[in-house]
Simulated scan of single mutants.
Amino acid sequence: MKKSIGLALVSVLSVSLLAGCRGSSKSTDASKAAAYKDGKYRASFDRLDTHGWNAFTEIEIKDGKIATVDFDYLNKDNKRKSEDKDYINAMASKSGTSPDKYCPQLEKALVDKQDLEKVDVVTGATNSTNNMKQLAKLALENAKKGDYNEVIVPQPDVKEEKKQ
């Protein structure tokens, strides 16, 4: 009789401990999600690249989560690369993609996955994917601190293609 009461108590305690552990993982997930402070955060390069474009990423956080992402490039006239028909046509014929396709694709991937590390490289737009990831990382670092100042970093050196 004493053994069965002891086994029952051990069983109840084991279930209680497991339930307690499960609850703590949920609170860890909630605190991870709340790591971002609501607002808009932006990062960009300090100058145009060798093709005349400057990448930027703007991320909006709502309820501690990535709600919207705006990734694109601006030229000296503040026109978007994703709306430049000549650029779109030229790039699409060479690489099979263009900024009107890969910008929204990268934006959606980050919103859907909520994790920059899980955003895949877009074939034909490797440099743009890397630019978006670099700038998004900086914007998200500010989102953790609640720092609304735009992060401006040096334009990475872009080597001009050699003509043959």
Rank of each mutant, 00 (worst) to 15 (best):
S16H: 10
K101Q: 05
K81M: 11
D46A: 11
E58W: 01
L140F: 12
D157Q: 09
A90H: 05
T50L: 13
T123R: 07
T129H: 10
K145P: 03
D77F: 07
S11P: 07
D63F: 12
Y87C: 01
C21K: 12
A55N: 10
P154G: 00
K65P: 05
E141K: 04
Q114D: 02
P156A: 06
N89L: 12
D147K: 01
E60F: 02
D46N: 15
M1R: 11
T97I: 03
C103R: 03
Q155R: 07
T129N: 06
K108A: 10
Y148I: 15
V119K: 07
S25A: 05
S27T: 13
V111L: 11
F45L: 06
C21L: 13
R47S: 15
D100N: 10
D86I: 10
D157M: 02
E117N: 09
M91Y: 01
M1F: 09
K79A: 13
K159H: 12
R22A: 15
K145F: 00
I66T: 02
E160Y: 10
E160K: 15
L9H: 14
T123P: 02
D147V: 03
P99G: 00
S27C: 11
A33M: 11
T68L: 04
K26G: 07
D72S: 13
P154H: 00
K163W: 10
L17F: 15
M1Q: 15
P156G: 08
D72P: 08
K2Y: 14
E117Q: 14
V111Q: 10
N78E: 09
I59V: 12
Q105I: 08
D38R: 01
S31W: 02
A55P: 01
T57I: 03
V69W: 00
V15P: 03
V121E: 03
N54T: 05
I152A: 04
A67C: 04
K159L: 11
F56Y: 14
N142L: 06
E150G: 12
V151M: 01
D29Q: 08
K32S: 11
V15K: 02
K133F: 08
A67G: 03
S4P: 08
Y73H: 13
A30E: 06
K76C: 01
V158K: 03
N89V: 07
G124A: 06
N78R: 07
S16E: 05
N131G: 06
L18A: 13
A67H: 09
D38F: 00
K162L: 14
R47D: 15
L116H: 02
N54W: 09
L138H: 01
L110K: 00
E150I: 04
I59Y: 00
D72M: 04
K159G: 07
A136G: 09
C21N: 15
D46Q: 10
N131W: 04
T50Y: 13
A92G: 12
Y102A: 01
E58Q: 15
K162M: 12
D112T: 07
D46E: 07
A34Q: 08
T50K: 08
K76H: 14
N78W: 09
